[in-house]
C-alpha cells in the first residue's frame, strides 16, 4: 500500500472539516476523490502534504507513519502536490518555478527538466517568462511540471481541470494518464466527476467532510446516486 489514511479528523478552529476519513491508494493506480465544493477534498490533500495538522487519525506513506512529520520531509519521501488554484510563483520564471519543484534534490535535474518540457512543450517556449504572465492552462501545466520535478512516487493533483476549456481538460487528463503509465501513482481530486471517474482506477465520493461511497471508477460512474448528484443524469 502506497498511502493509507485512517480515521482522519481535521478542524478549522471549531469547524469540523473532515470526519473519520479513511481511504487508501495502491501503488501504480489513479485514485480519485470527487465531491462538491466544500466537501473536504482540498483539506484532505493539504493535510496529506502536512500544511494542515490532523486532530486525530493517521496517515501512513510507504509503510511509515507520517502524520506528524514536516511538509518537507514528506516531499523528500516522494510525495508532491499540484495544489488547488495552481499556486505557481508568479514573480519567478517558468524555469525558476521548476527549480523550486526540485528544491530538495541535490543531483542533476536537467533530464527531468527535459522530461517536463516533453510533456508540456509550451512551457519550454515560455521558460524565461515569469509565471504570472502565463495563461490559466499554462499555469496548470507549470504546477504539474513543478510537482514532477521532485520525482514523486505519489502525486497529489487538486482540481487540475479548474477554469480550463474542455479541450485543455482532455489534454491535461491525457497527460495524467501518461504520467501514471510511466509509473507515478496519482491521487486526483476533482469536481469534474465525469472526466475523473473515466480516468481513475478507483474512486471515492466525499460529502461534508466524510467519505460516503467508494469503489472502482466504473462502479461509481454507474451508481445511480453518483449519476444523479455528480454526473447530471
Amino acid at each position: 500500500m502506497m498511502l493509507e489514511v485512517t480515521n482522519l479528523n481535521v478542524f478549522y478552529d471549531n469547524i469540523r472539516a473532515l470526519t473519520d476519513v479513511s481511504f487508501s491508494v495502491e501503488e501504480g493506480e489513479i485514485m480519485t476523490l470527487i465531491g462538491a465544493n466544500g466537501a473536504g477534498k482540498t483539506t484532505t490533500l493539504i493535510t496529506l502534504s502536512g500544511l494542515k495538522k490532523a486532530q486525530s487519525g493517521t496517515i501512513s506513506f510507504l509503510g511509515k507513519d507520517i502524520t506528524k512529520t514536516t511538509p518537507q520531509s514528506r516531499v523528500a519521501m516522494g510525495m508532491s502536490q499540484s495544489p488547488e488554484g495552481r499556486r505557481v510563483f508568479p514573480g519567478l520564471t517558468v524555469l525558476e518555478n521548476l527549480e523550486m519543484g526540485a528544491y530538495l534534490r541535490k543531483d542533476d535535474i536537467s533530464a527531468d527538466m527535459e522530461k517536463v518540457f516533453a510533456y508540456f512543450p509550451r512551457l519550454k517556449e515560455r521558460r524565461k517568462q515569469s509565471a504570472g504572465t502565463l495563461s490559466g492552462g499554462e499555469q496548470q501545466m507549470l504546477a504539474m511540471g513543478r510537482a514532477l520535478m521532485s520525482r514523486p512516487k505519489l502525486m497529489l493533483l487538486d482540481e487540475p481541470s479548474m477554469g480550463l476549456s474542455p479541450l485543455l481538460v482532455s489534454e491535461i487528463f491525457a497527460i495524467i494518464r501518461q504520467l501514471n503509465e510511466a509509473g507515478t501513482t496519482i491521487l486526483l481530486v476533482e469536481q469534474n466527476a465525469a472526466v475523473a471517474l473515466k480516468l481513475a482506477h478507483r474512486a471515492a465520493v466525499m460529502e461534508t467532510g466524510r467519505i460516503v461511497l467508494s469503489g472502482t471508477g466504473e462502479e461509481l460512474s454507474r451508481s445511480p446516486a453518483v449519476q444523479k448528484a455528480y454526473l447530471g443524469g
Binding site: I46, S49, G50, L51, T70, P71, Q72, V75, A76, S80, Q81, P83, R87, V88, F89, P90, G91, L92, E96, E99, M100, G101, Y103, L104, R146, A147, S150
Partner: peptide
C-alpha cells in the same frame, strides 16, 4: 542562488513553497 530563489518563493506563496519541500 538556491536560497535566494527560495526566499522569493516563500515571499510569494508560503504554502506553495512548503509544498516544494522548502523549510
Amino acid at each position: 542562488t538556491r536560497i535566494g530563489k527560495a526566499m522569493r518563493a516563500v515571499s510569494e506563496d508560503t504554502g506553495a513553497a512548503q509544498l516544494m519541500g522548502i523549510d
